[in-house]
Computed example of a mutant assay.
Amino acid sequence: MQAERLKVIEPLPLPLHERLFDDGEQLAQALAKQVAADLRGALARHGEACIALSGGNTPKRFFQALSTQTLDWARVTVLPIDERWLPPEHPRSNERLLREFLLQHNAAVARLLPLYRPTETPEAALMPVLTKIANEGLPLDVAVLGMGDDGHVASLFPDLGYDNPALREIGLQPRGRAPVMSIRTATMPEPRMTLTLSAIFTAPALHLHIEGEKKRAVLDGAQRDPRSTLPIRSVLSGAPVTPTLFWSP
């Protein structure tokens, strides 16, 4: 009599639409066209549109391509998904990044809704920023998230610890009440302000802009491993709409 053999059933990966490109320039152009279409749709539906965008080096080409798209930019509000607590003239400021690479050409007339305030700490500005974003920035129409090599999104970092009450109950809560939170982490030199997932998830168009094989491996691991506590896993598992991945090597 044969011994019974147990069949191991691998968990299904979380859903994710994928658009793959040969290089970053092709990706930037395609993402810009898609986001412009998303914004035109929002403008047609309710006369205005709001988009939240991630910072860093990866989106620069995308921002430049988006800035030349034809739409009624005067009725579009742009806000950073997160911000280092640095003045807007600082090279590491995401507000500066948006002003230099996106708010030019056709997009020069768009309205910028910054997260930074001239206070010593982000905690000191939290309530005014929270109120401003809740009243004038939400709901979003489009959100474009990046991802770090460590699986962080926005300024929601894995080294904060999934058991950190603020990260779990505010930052990663898909239907939380707080649209923004202040962040401090040992691996980053500056404190930050960030949108929470509950704010990001108000966008009916949710895109992930990721480049490079290393980041793709991190994303694939989080997508397939139900034990993963990386913030990108919380995006994939909690999003009310299936995100679309724009990826190139």
Rank of each mutant, 00 (worst) to 15 (best):
L12M: 11
H17N: 12
R19H: 11
G24R: 11
A28F: 00
A30P: 04
A30L: 07
L39K: 03
L39D: 03
L43A: 10
A44V: 06
A44T: 13
F62P: 01
F62Q: 06
T68L: 13
L71Q: 07
W73S: 04
W73K: 04
T77I: 12
V78W: 01
V78Y: 01
E83L: 07
W85H: 15
R92T: 04
L97F: 00
L98S: 02
L102V: 06
H105N: 14
N106Y: 02
A107L: 08
A108S: 14
L115R: 01
R117A: 13
T119Y: 12
A124S: 15
L130S: 12
A134W: 03
G137D: 08
D150N: 12
D150H: 08
A154K: 04
D159P: 00
L160W: 00
Y162V: 14
L172S: 04
Q173S: 11
R175S: 14
G176R: 08
P179A: 11
M181I: 09
S182V: 03
P189Y: 12
P189I: 07
E190Y: 14
S198I: 02
I200Y: 05
A205G: 04
I210R: 01
E211M: 10
R216E: 14
R216T: 02
A217D: 11
L219D: 10
G221N: 12
A222R: 04
T229G: 00
L230A: 11
V235G: 02
S237E: 15
F246P: 01
